[in-house]
Design a protein around this nucleic acid. Structure first.
Lengths: 187, 187, 187, 187
DNA sequence: AATGAATGAGCCTTCATTCAT
DNA sequence: AATGAATGAAGGCTCATTCAT
């Protein structure tokens, strides 16, 4: 039941927003009552925190699996992370939407746990790029942090427009992204 | 007073969110009373709509000024648009934040006016790139719409992290963005 | 202007109710501003009181004109009063509606002036009937006050349904009423 | 609790009017809180609608019981309906007051259900009179609809003045009404 | 585990009224 | 005579949360 509440809430938060979704909305959708909700979650924010943690933990795990792979170079790993992010939209894009959009509804307390993980995800990419520079796979004349943020901008923004059933699929989008970022648009 | 309410509201909406900001918060900050608010705005959503319109109209104007300039090529114009967006963060970054984040709080009715303008901004960039391809300034083997969205992702996402007083200034950030996008990261 | 405000208010009060009509509604309909309203009336209730007084005074005047006529008998005078009430609906039925329906919005203070006049109107009819009984025009075995109230019920209620442009006109309605009251329905 | 809210509201609506009675007034009188009110009724109008429906349904039921009685003539049935209405004042006169006075506070939507029932009640009386005319119990030279409305005027108006504890009781008032209507006042 | 009645704080909005000009 | 900005109290309604069962 706890899992069902979490899933349903992600759908509703993604569609209507955290504040705009009432506990009543959630329990109505599950055909249970408010008491049930409060049996599993102490507050509404607690639920949001749960969703955030689950999402970022899962993402970090997947990222580390990719990074720790021994026999691949940095460019390949970067490619895989971008693909992982884009392909994730189909499976749990709504979690991502909630993650990006509703973080401000968490208390200071809860943010202390989430923000470092979010930063970790970014820093992992940054290290990957630094590694690529060391190995002379990538150019060295640009500030790595800004480069990282530009790549994350591309991918994160796609949560707002990417349509898994659209003309261009997840694999193609991540390849286009990589081509732009690695090769550039200039002729 | 109408302008003061708008300004103050942008600050608060950016900081706390639209739903999370009460009319009381707004009028308290201005040391007036709720009646005053409703003398100038018929509803809270009306105010949000005002803010959206003002922002996107201003943006479209600036963009068209750049695009209509006769003696510059597509790459230069693209550079100027990106710089315009980044440098804007300092002056009205909070408007942008509100624009991106709170659009879902507008009614169908109001969205009908805003969404086409937002799309127009994107399509203008897309046409610029198509122009650059025709003139053989830019490579032609990537889908232009996705390319456009990737650039917008980069720039729009910077609203969440760019600090005008940080280590790297607006001019530098936009140059880095352009280098990545045009030249690529590969060595 | 004072008169225009009064007229417009009667229309609006009749249509939407006293509480449901705002000062703004009134001044909007007259294309003036709220300041103007408060130049002529000190409060909203003051206006309502004015309307009540004007209506009941006018009614009492008309009634006394009829009653004081020397050469008519009680039945004829009763007939004329009933006709006066019904035909009034066309000219100032909305005032009557407001009078009956909105009296509860007057303060104790103001009621002290209105209620005695309303009672006077009823007592005048009662005396007329008593006169008719004395003159042996009317039967004497029924309590005069109840009889009076039953006639007033008939006429007052017609404010809710009588349509001056309907199948049966004011003259006919008052004749029917008199026939029922005087002759009865029995065959 | 739902029933208690309904009862208390009828008292207050009758005394002060629908618009003039706040939810706060209602819950204060019951020593509960506003939340409780909205647990049972979705809006204030919903409550008013409930009250209307309950009243008119009850009235229609009673009326039909009388009309469907096999062994009585039209005059007797008319008498019983009038008596039913007057005697009802003691038990639920306040409901009647609310019914007559506050109908305009219902939305179009809700009126669609109420108005036909109110009309049905009138038409049932009208048919009763038509029946009486056919059976030659009643005179046939007056328009039946106006006659019906005049009788309803008498009875309905009594809600504004009839005092169950007054000099004349419900039985007597209804007998007086019937005598006037059937026999007339003329000597 | 789950229900459902009840709470209370807070929200958006309305509106009669005031007052300087 | 009339305006228009501003007030402040009150109203209808929402909703996260509590708690006895």
């Amino acid at each position: 039941m706890k899992e069902r509440i979490r899933e349903q809430s992600i759908q509703l938060f993604a569609k209507k927003g955290f504040k705009e979704t009432s506990i009543q909305d959630i329990v109505d959708a599950l055909k249970v009552t408010k008491g049930t909700f409060y049996y599993y979650f102490s507050t509404k924010e607690q639920l949001l925190n749960d969703i955030h943690l689950q999402y970022i933990d899962d993402l970090l795990n997947k990222q580390e699996d990719i990074i720790n792979h021994p026999s691949k170079n940095s460019k390949m790993k970067l490619h895989e992370i971008v693909y992982m992010l884009i392909s994730d939209i189909e499976k749990q894009g709504q979690s991502a939407l909630v993650f990006f959009r509703e973080m401000r509804n968490l208390s200071e307390e809860n943010l202390k746990l989430i923000v470092p993980k979010r930063d970790q995800f970014r820093l992992n990419i940054q290290q990957l790029i630094e590694h690529g520079i060391e190995k002379e796979e990538l150019r060295s004349d640009l500030p790595v942090d800004i480069v990282t943020l530009s790549i994350l901008g591309m991918t994160n923004w796609s949560y707002f427009w990417f349509d898994p059933n659209g003309r261009v699929n997840d694999k193609e989008v991540s390849e286009i992204f990589l081509k732009i970022v690695l090769e550039g648009l200039e002729k």
